[in-house]
C-alpha cells in the first residue's frame, strides 16, 4: 500500500511546493500565454466570407435613412459590397480589410475608415493591374455606384491626385463629411520600378441612405 500512497503524497507535496514557488510568475505566464492561445483550435479556412446579399436595388429607390440594426457589420476579410463605374468598366467586390488575401480577390477597405452611409471617410484600394486598372481613365464627374446589403450609394468623382504612398495629407480620417477615396499604385505601366506613388480618386456622396441609431 505504501508503494501507492507514498509516491502520491510526494507528488502532491512536490507540485504544491512548485506551485507556491512559481505563484508570482504563474499569472504573468498565463497572461502571456493567453496572447498566443485562441479559445478554440484555429481553423484555416482560406475562403473569405461575405455579408453582401447582392442587393439588386437601384439608387433611385433608396430610403433616406437606414437603422444601424439593419446594417450587418462585416468582420475583417468579409465582402460587404460591390463597387461599379459603368463608364470605365470598374466592377469590384469590396471587402472589409486590405491585406494581400483580400487584394487578390477584390478591393479592400482600410479598416480605419468608415462604411458607406456613416457620413465619414471611406477608403478603398486595389491593385492597379487588376480591379482598379480602370481608374487610369477615370475623370471628374464619373458616377460610382457602391452597393451594400443595407443600401445603394452613388458617389461622383470630384478630382484625382497623385501623391507619395507615405503622404498622409492625401486623406483626412477625421473628416465629418462623407467622402469616398479610391487609391491604387501609380503609374499603371508594367515594370517601371517600385511604385511608391498612389493615384487618389476623390468622390462626393450624391445619394444613398444615411445610417442612424
Amino acid at each position: 500500500m505504501a508503494y501507492i500512497y507514498m509516491p502520491l503524497i510526494f507528488t502532491v507535496i512536490g507540485y504544491g511546493i512548485l506551485w507556491i514557488a512559481t505563484a508570482p510568475v504563474i499569472d504573468f505566464v498565463y497572461n502571456v500565454g493567453s496572447m498566443v492561445m485562441a479559445q478554440e483550435v484555429p481553423e484555416f479556412n482560406t475562403q473569405l466570407g461575405s455579408v453582401f446579399d447582392g442587393n439588386d436595388g437601384t439608387p433611385e429607390e433608396q430610403p433616406e435613412f437606414v437603422s444601424t440594426s439593419n446594417v450587418n457589420l462585416p468582420v475583417f476579410g468579409e465582402q460587404y459590397g460591390q463597387i461599379t463605374c459603368e463608364r470605365i468598366g470598374l466592377d469590384a467586390p469590396v471587402y472589409f480589410g486590405d491585406d494581400n488575401d483580400i487584394l487578390r480577390v477584390g478591393a479592400g477597405q482600410y479598416i480605419g475608415s468608415f462604411l458607406p452611409g456613416y457620413g465619414r471617410l471611406i477608403m478603398l484600394c486595389a491593385h492597379n493591374t487588376t480591379f482598379f486598372r480602370p481608374l487610369q481613365i477615370i475623370e471628374a464627374g464619373d458616377i460610382i455606384v457602391f452597393k451594400t446589403s443595407y443600401g445603394v450609394y452613388q458617389y461622383q468623382v470630384s478630382r484625382t491626385d497623385i501623391k507619395d504612398h507615405n503622404d498622409s495629407s492625401a486623406y483626412d480620417l477625421l473628416k465629418e463629411e462623407e467622402e469616398l477615396i479610391m487609391y491604387t499604385c501609380y503609374p499603371f505601366e508594367t515594370m517601371v520600378g517600385t511604385k511608391t506613388d498612389r493615384l487618389f480618386v476623390y468622390c462626393e456622396k450624391i445619394s444613398g441612405p444615411t445610417v442612424i441609431d
Partner: peptide, 22 residues
Amino acid sequence: ATMLMVAIPGVVALASGFYKHI
C-alpha cells in the same frame, strides 16, 4: 513519485490538447 511527476504534465497536455490552440 518521479514517474508521476514527470508523466502528469505530459499526460495532461496531450489529453487536453491545449497547445493545439496556439
